[in-house]
């Protein structure tokens, strides 16, 4: 019972925030455009601050996390490759293939990983998770673009423009925040306390407003015609993938906060960026959007389930 309530407490606060955002829109306190603006603010200002603050002030010994980073990156790439091989066997609609593969490997690591690890281990352990963001975000972006391009319909097929992808990565505010922070740490550039405090003030706000605005953009439209794909996507993403990846992670010896990072990396629901990218690539954007909503809603069950099991076995 204590383990179960531990698992619930780890994820319930996240979902309460999403609910608050959802209700604020449903009850017409705020329109969707407000949440879009907040999301933009989070992406351009708040999230870079959060990344900067944590990398700058955590005295991370990056070297000791090399195994975790390698495991994370290899895991994501393997999922993408396996997806590209197996999804086309069962999914016949060309526009849906890329979306389903993307759903497998791309997760909302930022919004779910950081608050979840904070809830389980406390604020002082999110340093490695934040560091992971710096590695994972570029990988997600590159792989997402490659996979969607791979399944693009042949007429009018665009080639993957790597210059474009690289440009997107290095103008991504989150990556810029991470790079600047690493520079400050490596060159040991001192900062006034009040500058760090202010960045910290904004950083503290980030996950709260990010989750609220995530909830505010949710719509449960009729998804009947896509139901088979959604059920499949939810089961794969939330149960199959984390079950396999966590087993491997446990065998490789990851424990505690590092294992929780693996859970967030492979068990978190879909990210909004997948939807945006799918739409731009001419894939089935509607399905991508529905997958995000449904994986997020059901992630409450799956995350509680996995935390419960990992905790009962004494791994976290």
């Amino acid at each position: 019972m204590a383990t179960f309530s531990f698992a619930v407490m780890a994820v319930l606060p996240l979902f309460l925030m999403i609910f608050i955002g959802y209700f604020l829109r449903v009850f017409h306190v705020f329109k969707e455009s407000f949440f879009n603006e907040v999301t933009r603010f989070c992406f351009k200002v708040a999230m870079p601050c959060l990344i900067f603050k944590n990398i700058y002030s955590s005295n991370l010994d990056v070297g000791s996390y090399v195994p975790l980073v390698v495991f994370g990156i290899t895991g994501i790439i393997s999922l993408a490759v396996i997806g590209c091989l197996f999804i086309p066997l069962t999914v016949k609609d060309q526009k849906k293939k890329g979306v389903m593969v993307q759903n497998l490997f791309r997760a909302n690591f930022f919004f779910f990983g950081i608050p979840m690890i904070t809830n389980i281990f406390g604020e002082e352990h999110i340093g490695p998770a934040v560091m992971m963001v710096a590695f994972v975000v570029p990988i997600f972006n590159i792989l997402g673009a490659v996979v969607l391009a791979f399944f693009q319909e042949h007429e009018g097929k665009k080639r993957v423009d790597f210059k474009d992808i690289l440009h997107n990565i290095f103008t991504n505010p989150i990556i810029i925040g991470a790079i600047i922070a690493f520079l400050f740490v490596l060159l040991k550039i001192p900062l006034f306390d009040f500058v760090v405090d202010v960045i910290g003030d904004i950083a503290d706000v980030t996950t709260t407003i990010a989750l609220i605005s995530l909830g505010g953009t949710f719509k449960f439209q009729s998804a009947k015609h896509n139901m088979p794909y959604i059920i499949r996507g939810v089961l794969d993403k939330l149960f199959l993938v984390p079950a396999i990846m966590l087993t491997i992670a446990v065998i490789l010896g990851f424990r505690g906060p590092e294992l929780a990072i693996c859970l967030a990396l492979f068990g978190a629901p879909g990210a909004v960026a997948s939807f945006v990218m799918a739409k731009e690539a001419g894939a089935d954007g509607e399905l991508a959007g529905q997958l995000i909503v449904f994986t997020t809603a059901f992630a409450f069950v799956s995350l509680v389930f996995f935390i419960f099991i990992l905790r009962s076995l004494g791994f976290i």
Binding site: V8, M9, L12, P13, L16, M17, I20, N119, D201, I202, D204, V205, T207, T208, I209, I212
Partner: peptide, 18 residues
């Protein structure tokens, strides 16, 4: 309960900086 306490305090923290 603990989780509500946290949720309220997280939302409260937004007010001043924003």
């Amino acid at each position: 309960p603990n989780f509500l306490d946290r949720t309220v305090s997280d939302v409260a923290k937004v007010a001043t900086p924003m």
